[in-house]
Each structure stands twice: as structure tokens, then as C-alpha cells.
Nucleic acid binder design. Sequence first.
DNA 1: GTCTATATACGGATAGAC
DNA 2: GTCTATCCGTATATAGAC
Lengths: 258, 258
Amino acid sequence: MRNDNTANWPQEQCFASFKHCLPVCRESVYSEFFEAFREDIKVKRESAAVKNLKIIFDATFELASKGGFDAMSLRDLSQSTGISMGGLYNYIRSKDMLAQMVNDFLSQRLAPLAYSLNLESGSPRQRLATRLRIYIYMGSLFRPWYRFVYMESKSMARQQRDQAKQFDLVDTAKLKEVIEEGVAAGEMHCANSELTASALLALIQDWYLKSWKYKQNETSTDDYANFLVSLMDKLLADNDQHTHDQTGYNDHSGKNNQ
Amino acid sequence: MRNDNTANWPQEQCFASFKHCLPVCRESVYSEFFEAFREDIKVKRESAAVKNLKIIFDATFELASKGGFDAMSLRDLSQSTGISMGGLYNYIRSKDMLAQMVNDFLSQRLAPLAYSLNLESGSPRQRLATRLRIYIYMGSLFRPWYRFVYMESKSMARQQRDQAKQFDLVDTAKLKEVIEEGVAAGEMHCANSELTASALLALIQDWYLKSWKYKQNETSTDDYANFLVSLMDKLLADNDQHTHDQTGYNDHSGKNNQ
DNA sequence: GTCTATATACGGATAGAC
DNA sequence: GTCTATCCGTATATAGAC
């Protein structure tokens, strides 16, 4: 369903071009999903399965987003999808597994897609900007998935829970690494790369966590990505003229960080 | 239990001085809580009530932080507190009310405390920095309360849920207002005050949402507050030399914002 | 003021008809 | 492949003893 001039994304960095290069789109995602979980899904006819998977998981995201996954009963889900309780169990092994499927699919199938794009070319500054954009674009495309995993990972088995924290740390570390390459190259300035990377990640997550807010004030995906990149540029600017004076406030920034 | 040179906080802006000026501390908070909910609490002897309220709510925060409020059963809570099921119902009207008490106490009692401090003196830049610090310091003092309300507001009654979003918008608007004063005064530069305010709020929230992470990398409250203020200074710096060039990327920032 | 025992309902899961 | 009917555990909440 997609072309694969995948390796050449950084041509013109906007949401539209990103979608065009990514090998999966919002519409084809449940075909991938079916393939990933063939073994667990009792229904074997692909057309029927894909159709119902979409109904079931879209409804799950909807219901879980108000009240949380734990508050959602399978009876709610049954009613909301029009699929009977017994029917649901042909698509999921258990309620817990339903959550785990979302988590696993996002972390093992969707998120890695982004890394199939070419991330390693260009200056550190360019690579950092590209990374930020990819996170935002992925968040826009698969927002309910990201949101669900962020909000509900705590409800999952210990293994998944630890994994979620691990991903947070890994993502932070990756951003930090590029920042430090930029600093080493003399292209950036940064007093605390750990906290700066953390902040960038927090702003990435805010994009899919507070979609209601950004929808309300009509911030588009490209608006947000552009804002985030320009924020990054300001944070990492190399002007040593430390902006304003510190106006009497004690700045212990030397103590920051590990 | 506290002095009240409340009106003069912005003396030396660090966590220690903030705690000293605030009329409530972590230890006295459940006395305030008891007073706020006298009517709902069947136990009338204050000493016993305050002691058990602390046990009950601290345990609630602990249990809700892993698994979520909805996944926590009152049996869990009973076991964890050493108070019987029947006993618990002398302190709360229902499980739902338990969550609502946290929400109401934070929004009506704790959060307003910060506004008793003097926020209106100084330049816009100073006032903005003071606001950011207050949010961070309040987050450090009452982290479980803030965390709970952020994570569990979706599980509450519609009224509380809408209120939580409302507070987010109000906080954003307040930050935005000060930013725009700074811009008007020629003290700051900002292309999109709405998104900038949103970003600052997201970073404030990250402080109490990801405490595990900041504990792990040994970022202290003052470290984070200082970082956030310096980040703000960079974002709002008035140098029109737009940092780096945009290196081939299309920047639609003119289209940003509503 | 705190406990034990219990009423009542609801949720997850499955068996078996169609 | 989907539905209905049902089992059974667990949850909230309360009544009443001490």
C-alpha cells in the first residue's frame, strides 16, 4: 500500500512527505496488526478479521481514553463494537492481552518503522531536527496507540511496565547522544544535555497526550513540529552572550545533571 | 505551623525559602485536609482522624501510582493501611468520593496557596520566572497530589474531568499573559505565545509525572527549577539573529498559532 | 471508633447452540 | 465465525457486634 523510497525521506520535511514515505498508513495498520498476531487470533479469514480488529481496537482507544483501560469493561466494549462477548474472545485471549497487544504492536512494529527512514545523514543539528519531526509525525499518525501505551502501561504486566520506562530512558539517551555530538562538533551549546533531552521528549509526548488542547487552538502537526524544531534551535544556540542577566537569582546550573 | 511573611516571598528564590514562606507544609497538610472535609468524615476526634487520613491517602497515592486508581480495590487499600473495610468508610463516603476529595483539595486548597505569595511585583520576566518556580516547588512538595489529579482525573465524574482540562487551559493562559506582557514591554521576543506557554506547562507537569526519572539522574528540585527558568530565558530571548539558518528545511512558522 | 460478616452487583471468561 | 446463557470470583458498600 506504500512505496518504499523509504531510505530517502529527508527531502522536504513536512507531515505530508513523511506519510508518503512511511511503509504503513493509518488505513493499512490493521492488516499489519493481523499479520503480527495471527497465532492469537482465532478468526482466520483476513478480510473479516481486519475489519473487526479495527472496530475493536478503535473502540478500545475511545473507551480507554475516558475512564482508563481498567475502568472499561468488556461488556462496554461489546456494546460499543456491536460484537458479542463471545465474539470478542475470538480476537483477544483476555482483557490483559488486549492491552499487551497494543503495547507490543507499537513497540515492535510501529515505532521501528520510523527507524527505517534515513536518520544518519547530515549534521547533528539536522539529525536532531529529523528525529524530533519523526516523533511528532508518528505521534500524529498513531496517536491513540502512543497515548494508550503512555497512559496504560502502568496497568500492564510488570514486564511491559518496566519496558515503557526503559523506552523513555532510551529515547532520552538517543536525543542526548545527538546533542552531545553537536556540542562536540561546536555546532551547539548545551549546559545540561540530559535535562535538555528530557525536555524535548516531554514536549514530544505532550503532543499526543494533549491532542484535545492542540486541536482546540488549531495547531496542526506541521505547526507543532516546526515549533519544536525552532525551540530546539533556541535551546541549543551557540551564542555565549547568556541572554538576559540572571537578575539576582541563584543559578546552580553547574550542579545540574549526573 | 508556619510563619506568614507570605507576601514577601521573592527574596531568594530557592526551594528552601519557598517552603519556609508557604503556610502549609508536607506534615501539616492532613490537618488542613481534615478541616476541609469535616462534614464528610465520620470520625470526629481530630488526632485520630488526621493520623488515619495520612495513612489512607498516602497509601492511595502509592497504590494508584502502580496500576491506577481504578485498578486499586478498597480491599487492597484496607490491607495496605491496616484499616478494615468498615473502618475506611468512616473516612470516605465512597471510592469515587475518595478520588474527588483529592481533586477538590488540590484545586481548592493546595494550589491556591501558591497564589497567596506575591506574584505581581517585578518585570514580566521576573514574574514569569517566579511563576515557573512556584509550580515546580509546589510539584515537589505535593507531588503525589498533582500526579494523582493528572493521571486519574479521567476516572472522575464528568464535572471533575472537565475541571481538570479547564485548569490546564487556565494555567496556559496565565503563562501566556505574562509572556505577552514581556513582549509588549520589549523585554521578550516570542513568535507564538500560546505554544510557548503550553510547552512551559508541559515541562512543569513532566517534573511531577516523571519523578522516577529525575530521581534516577539525581536532578534536585532546584536543579530543575533553574533549568526551566534558563530554558524560558532562551526561548524568550530578544536576539533577532535567528540563531542558525534553517538549513534547507521549510519553516512555516508564520502559519503557526491561532 | 473499629471490626467482622454479609448483601448485592458486576466483570471476566467459557461452553455450547446455531 | 458469531451469539446466548451461565459460571464464578471479586468488588463496593452496609449492618450490626463489640
